[in-house]
Structure formats: C-alpha cells, structure tokens
Design a protein around this nucleic acid. Sequence first.
DNA 1: AGTATGTAATTGCCTTGACAACTATTGTTA
DNA 2: TAACAATAGTTGTCAAGGCAATTACATACT
Lengths: 153, 153
Amino acid sequence: MHKIPKLSDLRDDANLALLIRQVREGLMHQLERELTAIGVELNYSQYLVLKLLAKYGPQMPGDVARCLEHNAGAMTRLLDRLEDKGYVRRQPHAEDRRALSIDLTEAGQALWKTINNCSERIQNTAVRDLEQPERERLFDLLKRVRDTLEKTP
Amino acid sequence: MHKIPKLSDLRDDANLALLIRQVREGLMHQLERELTAIGVELNYSQYLVLKLLAKYGPQMPGDVARCLEHNAGAMTRLLDRLEDKGYVRRQPHAEDRRALSIDLTEAGQALWKTINNCSERIQNTAVRDLEQPERERLFDLLKRVRDTLEKTP
DNA sequence: AGTATGTAATTGCCTTGACAACTATTGTTA
DNA sequence: TAACAATAGTTGTCAAGGCAATTACATACT
C-alpha cells in the first residue's frame, strides 16, 4: 500500500509557465480589486485599452488589438462594452473607409483621470520587494524571453 | 489637425502585465504547437495535469487544481476531457469518501513517455538566450514578485 | 450523539477570448 | 483598368475557466 504524497503545499517553482501564470493572476486580481473598490467596473483588458487611448490618442481597433496581443474579434466585443459604458466612441477613420478611429469620450477622459495611476501603483506593489536594479533586470530578462519565443517558430 | 501616431510597432515594454502576457502566450503556443506536431491533442492545462500525475502519482482533483492555480469547477471539466481521451481515471479515494483519486491509465502513462520532455524543451527554448545565472535570477525575481502579490491583499 | 462548520466534487451560468468565415475597402499587379 | 490579393472590422461558434449553488461526506464543538 503506497502513500499518496501531499501535494497541496508543494510548489513547482521550476516551472516557468506556472510562475508566469501566478504573477499574471496576481496582477490582474489586484488591479480589478482596486478598480471595484472605487466603484469602477472594468476588467484588465478594458483598462489597458483606455490607458492606451489616453496615452496615445485615437487609434484603430486593429492596432490596439495587436498592441495588447489581442484577437481582432475579441477587440470588437471589448469595444462594444466600453462603448456601452460610454467611455469610448467609434468614429470613421479619416483616411481609410474600412477602418475606425476609436477615441475616449468625455466620460472616458474623466474616468481616466480617476484611474490613471492604478496600474502603476499595482506594478509598484508587485515589485515592491525588489531593488531598483533588480526591477530593471526583471524587465530585461522577460523581454529577452519574449523576444526569443517570438522569433522561434 | 493632429496626426494619429502609428501604434502598430510601438511596444509598451514598461508594462509588466503585458510582458507577462506575451511570455505566457509564447510558452503556451510553443507547447501546443509541439504537441499537435506529434499528433497529440492536449492543451497546456491538460498537459500540466498529466505531468503532475506522472511526477507525483495519484492525486485529488482539488489538490491538482490548487497546485495549478485552477478553479475546482474547471478542474472537474478538464478531468472529464482527459478521461474521455482515456488518459486518466477517477477512482474512489481510500480515506475520504467525498474525494477522488485521479491517476494515469496505461494509455496515459504511455502518452507521458512520448511527451514527457516537451515542457522542459520549451522552457529551455524560452531561456535559450540567457546565461545560466540569468535564468536563476529570472526565476528568483518572478518568485519574489509572485510572493509579494500573494501576501498583499 | 447532535449540531454546526468545513471541505470535495459537480453543475449551471456567465465572461473572456480564440478562430474562421464574411463583407467592405484598399493596394497591387498583369 | 480588371483581376487578385491583402487588410479592417464584424459575426458565429466554440473552448477555457471563474463563480456561486448544491450535494455528500468529514470534522469540530458542546
């Protein structure tokens, strides 16, 4: 008769994918908690879209999708929801009649003022226990891993 | 009249969440590509469950779920699929009649022999451009970020 | 023992997001 | 310029996975 080992408290810390997943979950959870705490109903992706529009001005959905590593179909529906909430507006694109130009409405800009530093705060929380040079190293290492994976196929 | 900046090739590399997402996507994509290449129909999570069972022996679904940072309901359905494919078996747990003991079938063990080094290979690919000490640093930094986020609430 | 509380797995419901098919427009090439 | 390919956005369909409610069993408390 053989004893089943207790797995519960075991952690496979040599597994990069798992580690990544845990960090991701942590970041998303934290941001969404913070947003709901101040009464804002946005998920991570929606937040990032607003951030992008606030930072870089009006954009085409496809570009936003690519930038956020998102599928185009997903972006359509994400924008539907942001539009429903009144934070975002679809407008015809000046130079390409297939395309759209998405921009923030007044409500969107107002909202942004109140949530503008959320993700920075979360990110700072996440790296709270790292020294500044360690933070830079983390980013550098992650970038290199990403780039390696990207050009692998 | 103001020019809309070209976003397409722009990369917000200061965004931890985005970077994490890109790495995650890369890892998952790579693994699933490799699996389908050898004719195995498994997604990342299913793969990890098999790995866990192969490595640590029979386990309770709940423990597997916790270990893989998964929801219990999701685990139920994930196991349904693995059971459909015949890789895994649910058996009554010896000491707790609420619980189950999941173990690999013969087919599951045979499969594992053929895919056993997949995730290691992917992971090695991912960190291919890092020196050994850099790899260790990456893991260390990620673990610390995860732990920080975990005890933040 | 008897009740309350906790835990294991399952299920229904829902959201997110991927993929592929489709339409409309643009760009390219013969 | 006519045909063809590429691109922008939308839509249907689907799988993954989270959450809450439920059922069955286990543990703790008194």
